[in-house]
Nucleic acid binder design. Structure first.
Length: 197
DNA sequence: ATAGAGATTGCCT
DNA sequence: GGCAATCTCTATA
């Protein structure tokens, strides 16, 4: 097995509506220190016109970063317990982000196991938005990190893998409004996705 | 001020 | 399958 060749991302990839960006970041790598995971499931969230989005009511203290530059990391607290990670993504002057819902562990597995004592199988490490933040060690200290900046604490990079030509598409889960949008995407066949499709 | 819902997870029965 | 944990924001007063 050869070392994967890592390439920087072009920011223009993220300067499109979140629901167009979302399937494009499948199979990218997210890295925090030595810990690396492959993104296998995402959901897109829009701006004030998306009732399920944190940005629906405008730039609240929590959601302000969704109005900021594409490529920044949006971390929020879920149910007062877990951290969840998003990539800010939208057209200029618009609003949106892509929630990372599941990763396949790639490197730093020992640290991931240590960070997730409840995990029993490898797919328990990152098969959910809260789980993958725990596994990677992402928390509110990383809020606003530029994921495309070399040397940043949390990075988004590409290796040899392209996004799937035909991602699995579904409606977003865990929400009660905005169910009409088919904005959940995952890598076909991955056993590291969150809930059953 | 206070109450209730929420982009979740893990432990209990 | 039920439910607690406990932060952020909204609605109501």
């Amino acid at each position: 097995m050869t070392r994967p060749l890592l390439r920087a991302l072009d920011r223009s990839l993220l300067e499109q509506p979140a629901h167009e960006v979302a399937p494009q970041i499948l199979n990218l790598l997210i890295a925090c220190g030595e810990r690396v995971g492959r993104i296998v499931e995402v959901e897109a969230y829009g701006g004030t016109d998306d009732p399920a989005s944190h940005a629906h009511r405008g730039p609240t203290p929590r959601a302000t970063i969704m109005f900021d530059r594409p490529g920044l990391l949006y971390v929020y607290r879920s149910y007062g317990v877990h951290w969840c990670a998003n990539v800010v993504a939208h057209r200029p002057s618009e609003v949106g982000a892509v929630l990372i819902r599941a990763i396949e562990p790639i490197a730093g597995l020992e640290q991931m196991w240590a960070a997730r004592p409840a995990a029993r199988r490898p797919q328990d490490l990152g098969s959910g938005p809260g789980k993958l933040c725990q596994a990677l060690g992402i928390n509110d200290e990383h809020l606003g990190t530029d994921l495309l900046e070399p040397g940043a604490a949390v990075r988004l990079v590409r290796d040899g893998a392209d996004p799937p030509a035909h991602p699995v598409i579904g409606t977003r889960i865990g929400i009660s409004v905005g169910l009409d949008h088919p904005w959940r995407f995952s890598v076909p066949g991955s056993c590291h996705r969150s809930r059953r499709w």
